[in-house]
Simulated assay, not measured.
Amino acid sequence: MTTKRFNTAINKLYQAFHDNTLHPECCKQCAVGNILDHKEAWKHLSDHHGSTELNYLGQVHQNLGRRFNGYTPMELLQIESTFLVACGYTIPLHHKNSKPKNPTDKDVLFKGLSAVVSYLCKLDGIPDVMDCEALFKYETKKTVISQVI
């Protein structure tokens, strides 16, 4: 069973991926930017895009228990960090740090989104829908040895 925030986030990310409106370097079109309806206010929660450290404003919102489309400031930073790292960026974003040659390549974005979906599952305590290991599991026959006493 999934949560409302999970379903909403997944739908927005799915739409962005297929509409080609997903861009890791744009705070309105990255993973969190899409989850937050293309708003950029979330970028003021930390001092650097991709950072997992809340700045003073982020800490205030976190301590007040504020949520943005269901996510805490810390969760948003973790989501974005997960996305960027899986896309091949060294975080935080900086012109000297490594990044993918083509950040909007579908393969790059898919890797980023796969990691984000797995992380969203973890946040909500639901089975990882991106984990296909369960599809290939099979039962092994175990020999039952009974001991006679």
Rank of each mutant, 00 (worst) to 15 (best):
residue 147 Q to P: 11
residue 61 H to R: 14
residue 7 N to Q: 00
residue 118 S to E: 01
residue 53 E to I: 07
residue 66 R to D: 08
residue 93 L to M: 02
residue 67 R to E: 02
residue 145 I to H: 12
residue 33 G to D: 06
residue 56 Y to F: 14
residue 22 L to M: 15
residue 47 D to C: 05
residue 63 N to I: 00
residue 80 E to A: 12
residue 80 E to H: 11
residue 122 K to E: 10
residue 148 V to Y: 11
residue 134 A to F: 07
residue 16 A to V: 05
residue 66 R to Q: 12
residue 94 H to E: 09
residue 11 N to D: 13
residue 113 L to A: 03
residue 68 F to N: 00
residue 110 F to T: 08
residue 26 C to Q: 13
residue 71 Y to P: 00
residue 78 Q to L: 10
residue 48 H to M: 02
residue 123 L to E: 01
residue 74 M to C: 12
residue 97 N to A: 14
residue 9 A to K: 03
residue 95 H to M: 11
residue 54 L to H: 06
residue 36 L to I: 03
residue 99 K to A: 01
residue 146 S to Q: 14
residue 69 N to V: 09
residue 145 I to V: 13
residue 59 Q to K: 14
residue 48 H to P: 05
residue 97 N to Q: 12
residue 80 E to S: 09
residue 92 P to G: 00
residue 14 Y to K: 15
residue 148 V to C: 12
residue 24 P to L: 00
residue 133 E to V: 05
residue 99 K to F: 00
residue 138 Y to A: 15
residue 13 L to G: 07
residue 66 R to H: 15
residue 40 E to C: 08
residue 131 D to L: 04
residue 74 M to F: 09
residue 91 I to R: 12
residue 131 D to C: 09
residue 42 W to L: 05
residue 82 T to C: 02
residue 95 H to Q: 10
residue 12 K to M: 04
residue 124 D to C: 08
residue 136 F to H: 10
residue 78 Q to T: 08
residue 20 N to L: 06
residue 119 Y to A: 07
residue 58 G to T: 06
residue 107 D to E: 08
residue 37 D to T: 08
residue 70 G to I: 02
residue 77 L to M: 05
residue 13 L to E: 00
residue 61 H to I: 00
residue 19 D to R: 11
residue 7 N to P: 03
residue 25 E to T: 15
residue 13 L to T: 07
residue 105 D to E: 04
residue 27 C to M: 13
residue 76 L to F: 04
residue 80 E to L: 11
residue 47 D to P: 02
residue 140 T to R: 15
residue 29 Q to A: 05
residue 98 S to L: 13
residue 8 T to G: 09
residue 149 I to Y: 10
residue 30 C to L: 04
residue 137 K to I: 10
residue 79 I to K: 04
residue 33 G to F: 03
residue 71 Y to D: 02
residue 78 Q to W: 02
residue 149 I to D: 06
residue 70 G to W: 03
residue 47 D to W: 05
residue 87 C to S: 00
residue 13 L to I: 08
residue 129 V to Y: 01
residue 137 K to G: 14
residue 17 F to A: 06
residue 114 S to G: 13
residue 2 T to P: 13
residue 136 F to R: 10
residue 83 F to V: 01
residue 5 R to W: 06
residue 35 I to W: 06
residue 46 S to N: 04
